[in-house]
């Protein structure tokens, strides 16, 4: 009975994974894609992991359950940081927002970051130099 509950958990996680990947294909620019994909796939994978942990604990498979919980914590902590780093890198390397965007408050700050990098003389990618 309780086991079936966790199987439902895994099923919902799989559906979220699929929606995240559909979003990755359908949405128009990098920032929107990163949003949909990161949110849905992180929660989906975490739900799969929690379901596996629950089934492991019910079957007295403590090692599998504990590892699944640790892995869920890792995914939950690392995935938003990765999305943030990619979006920041994308903006600074000069990928434009989608044409339907209504506001852009980051442009000034990005320019400041680029000039700081140029004056520091650190390793530059070609995109950062040309923009």
């Amino acid at each position: 009975m309780l086991e079936n509950f966790f199987y439902v958990f895994i099923g919902v996680g799989l559906v979220f994974d699929l929606f995240g990947c559909i979003g990755l294909v359908r949405l128009p620019d990098v920032y929107n894609r990163a949003q949909a994909a990161t949110k849905c796939v992180t929660l989906g994978t975490c739900m799969i992991l929690i379901g596996v942990a629950g089934i492991g604990f019910i079957g007295a498979n403590w090692q599998m359950g504990l590892k699944a919980v640790i892995c869920a914590a890792f995914v939950l902590l690392t995935s938003p940081v990765a999305a943030h780093a990619i979006c920041r890198g994308a903006y600074i390397s000069g990928v434009p927002l989608w044409t339907g965007s209504v506001e852009d408050a980051f442009a000034d700050r990005a320019q400041v970051i680029r000039t700081q990098q140029t004056t520091e003389g650190s390793v530059q990618s070609e995109e950062a130099e040309t923009t």
């Binding site: 929606f19 949405l27 949909a36 989608w98 339907g100 965007s101 408050a105």
Partner: peptide, 12 residues
């Protein structure tokens, strides 16, 4: 995402 018209108004 699954809405046919993609109802988004993105921005920073």
């Amino acid at each position: 995402v699954i809405h046919p018209d993609l109802p988004i108004r993105p921005g920073i």
